[in-house]
Write a protein that binds this DNA or RNA. Structure first.
Length: 311
DNA sequence: TGAATTTGACCTTG
DNA sequence: CAAGGTCAAATTCA
């Protein structure tokens, strides 16, 4: 973790508070029926807890970002990432481990920012959004092609969200998904979109795809610094079939790679034993990438939800 | 027949 | 010039 003493102290305190609230929320939910986000049925009291969690996380992130601003500026001045933001090119170098050493460009047409969110996801590429494939590229040094998707609503709503999907060489059952741009199609279009996520505080998805109860929404696999969440199947199209020839894994599990922008937070989460519940945890996750991890966590409870930014 | 996918060409960057 | 990202015509699918 970088040196960010005052900010990290404050962030740690905030995250600890948020975690306490999450624990209370979890305890409440474990004794209830699954809470269906987006249905407007959040029980009174739970909303307060979620609000508290959101506040704490937002403040923690603000503190961490403030502390990392100077470091980021210094890193950018180092030269390796300079052009990406200057010319609107994203962090392709982060899109795949197989190409991280030689992939330096990510073209971002349309003017959205250079933020990227990387996700490693098992079994399925589905994320609750409907994507249209617009390209496929063999990547030098990689066994698997990279698939390029943009939001289906790009033309209708000018939604500039894009994502890149590539099968992991280390584990072919894992899809490396990098998100770029914000989904601007959602808020005006909720009634047309599939029911996107169900918050599960219980076990993993059942065989028939019905969401089940499970534990905490947060979990950490610990061994490799990855944060793991999982989601239930959704109504997104399923282009993963193209890549999933040898995949037998049905866990449908996301692995959010420790973000370059949030090493402090993830490290802190680990050191704080952020989630003592390791196995069987699931969290349905819309994977809308945007301004911050928790800016729109409200939508995680029925609205939007944003998380790790790589840049 | 319209929508989605495929795929080669083109563009930009290092 | 190589590599990666996007475009767009051709093709496939429902």
């Amino acid at each position: 973790m970088a040196s960010c003493a005052p900010a990290c102290d404050a962030a740690s305190e905030l995250v600890a508070r948020g975690r306490d609230s999450a624990a209370v929320l979890q305890a409440l939910l474990l004794g209830q029926q699954p809470v269906v986000a987006g249905a407007g049925a959040t029980p009174h009291g739970l909303q307060e807890l979620t609000d508290e969690i959101l506040r704490c996380c937002d403040r923690a992130l603000a503190a961490l970002r403030e502390s990392s601003t100077e470091e980021d500026a210094a890193a950018a001045a180092g030269g390796t990432r300079k052009r990406k933001t200057e010319r609107g090119y994203g962090p392709a170098a982060h899109a795949s481990p197989a190409t991280s050493s030689n992939s330096k460009r990510m073209r971002v047409r349309g003017g959205e920012g250079a933020r990227a969110t990387r996700v490693e996801k098992r079994s399925s590429m589905e994320d609750g959004f409907i994507w249209r494939k617009y390209g496929q590229k063999e990547i030098h040094g990689s066994m698997y092609p990279r698939l390029y998707y943009r939001c289906t609503y790009k033309d209708e709503h000018g939604c500039m969200a894009r994502r890149q999907v590539q099968q992991s060489e280390d584990d072919p059952s894992v899809f490396l998904i990098t998100y770029f741009g914000d989904h601007t199609c959602r808020r005006d279009d909720d009634d047309e979109r599939p029911a996107q996520f169900v918050i599960n505080f219980g076990s993993s998805t059942s065989d028939d795809g019905q969401p089940q109860q499970s534990g905490s929404p947060w979990s950490s696999c610990g061994d490799d610094g990855l944060v793991v969440v999982s989601k239930t199947p959704d109504l997104c199209n399923s282009p993963e079939e193209e890549l999933r020839s040898s995949t037998g894994n049905e866990s449908d599990e996301f692995i959010i790679e420790q973000s370059a922008s949030f090493p402090e937070l993830t490290s802190m989460m680990s050191s704080m034993e952020w989630d003592p519940l390791v196995d069987g945890n699931s969290l349905d996750w819309p994977f809308c990438e945007g301004e911050s991890l928790f800016d729109d966590i409200g939508e995680f409870m029925g609205h939007d939800f944003n998380y790790f930014d790589l840049l």
